[in-house]
């Protein structure tokens, strides 16, 4: 079964650093640990109607924490830094005669939803 986009992109990862990178078109998310870069790219494009240029991922291991005698682990997670095109060209295709036609499809230049606590 194919994973739904909502299952891949879990929540935004908002910190001072990630917040600053928005200016460069880089958005950071916590994603499903099993997802691949391609899946993340597709999910972001689907969810936010933007054009993704690149995806970098980082895997974080959970840390060992102890509450008295009990030893536990904090959750492991995967972080994905998604770079989007902040100046997307209109989507076009060529017809048979070599004529370029723009489609109605429009990419957004930013992810406005970023930062809304999910």
């Amino acid at each position: 079964m194919m994973k739904r986009a909502e299952d891949i992109i879990l929540r935004p990862y908002i910190t001072e650093k990630s917040n600053e990178e928005i200016a460069e078109g880089k958005y950071t998310f916590i994603v499903d640990r099993r997802s691949t870069k391609t899946e993340i790219k597709n999910a972001v494009e689907k969810l936010f109607q933007v054009k993704v240029l690149s995806v970098n991922t980082i895997n974080y291991q959970g840390k060992q924490k102890r509450m008295g005698v009990h030893v536990g682990k904090t959750e492991a997670f995967k972080k994905a830094i998604v770079k989007i095109d902040t100046d997307p060209k209109p989507v076009t295709y060529l017809t048979k005669g070599g004529k370029e036609v723009a489609t109605a499809k429009k990419y957004k230049t930013s992810i406005e939803e970023f930062g809304v606590g999910q």
């Binding site: 990862y13 908002i14 910190t15 001072e16 917040n19 930062g115 809304v116 606590g117």
Partner: peptide, 15 residues
């Protein structure tokens, strides 16, 4: 959370 004190932008603080 995620920001040092005084470094959070206004839009985030408001939210």
């Amino acid at each position: 959370p995620g920001f040092r004190k005084g470094k959070a932008p206004r839009s985030l603080v408001e939210r």
